[in-house]
Design a protein around this nucleic acid. Structure first.
Lengths: 146, 146
DNA sequence: ATGCAAGCTCAAGCTGACTTGAGGTCAAGC
DNA sequence: GCTTGACCTCAAGTCAGCTTGAGCTTGCAT
């Protein structure tokens, strides 16, 4: 409610470790919102520090900004989320991590089998399945075991 | 030794599930080599099916082509690698997977702590450490927990 | 009241990993 | 001998996720 709850972009940048340009980009992408001062400068909510921190963590997990945006959409728009809101969304993130760990564990297991035979290549090799990749396409960078 | 050991790019593409254009790109990047026919067409070794399969698997783990190239450099150049060669390089990949699983497990643990307090944001939060990210920069897409 | 850091917009650039397109060649079957 | 599909070489485009630069404005501290 206080004026102090509104912070300029540079402060937000310092608090999150993000570049100012990155924050502007995120705003353009709709990941975060701002209001403008009379002089057309952005002002963010203090709670956006948390919001952007969430973005950073989710990114580390390999989520794209689109997915992150979807996750964030479950938070109250433009108003400070409660601790419960954050707990809920964090748990979703935990689910993501679980899945990735499982996938990696399975991959490791398959790889172990393959090391046994030295194959790595063919239809018999569980690691390497053409069908898996068929739908995976599109340009841009590839992500981990998606 | 046989002429049949040399396969055209289309065959290699079909066997690996890669696009022809991707294989040409990999060749340009030095991930795979070819010889040319009298009519200037590429001919690959049959063992390059394995080589490219390795590339695909490593990519799924989030390795960049540069890293993959380095890994492949330990294989005999332009000659069919032995089963032992493949076992050795596969084990290196296993190490990568292990590391990633460990990192994810640690992250999950930290996240669990954070869910407890609903924080996600600040210096107190183990998940979120500015120093970690300080050196991570550079343009291009960000990769999983590197 | 003035200096200067911090902010603004918009366009262009960059990396990684490819794809697409134009325009031309090669080779195997009929 | 001719057609058809696989192959060739560039050059340019694409997508994500930003950064960089030019040129201009704001606003806090002295």
């Amino acid at each position: 409610m206080n004026r102090n709850d509104l912070i300029p972009i540079g402060t937000l940048a310092r608090r999150t470790g993000l570049a100012v340009s990155a924050i502007r980009y995120y705003e353009e992408r709709g990941l975060v919102q701002s209001v403008r001062t009379g002089g057309n400068q952005r002002r963010f909510l203090r709670s956006d520090i948390r919001r952007l921190s969430f973005v950073l963590i989710a990114q580390k997990l390999g989520l794209g900004l689109g997915q992150i945006e979807q996750a964030l959409a479950t938070l109250p728009q433009g108003r400070t989320p409660t601790v419960l809101d954050w707990q809920k969304i964090s748990r979703a993130l935990r689910g993501e991590i679980d899945q990735r760990i499982q996938l990696l564990t399975r991959t490791r297991h398959k790889l172990d089998e393959c090391i046994g035979c030295g194959c790595l290549s063919l239809d018999r090799c569980a690691l390497y399945n053409k069908e898996d990749r068929a739908g995976a396409a599109g340009p841009g960078p590839r992500f981990v075991l998606d």
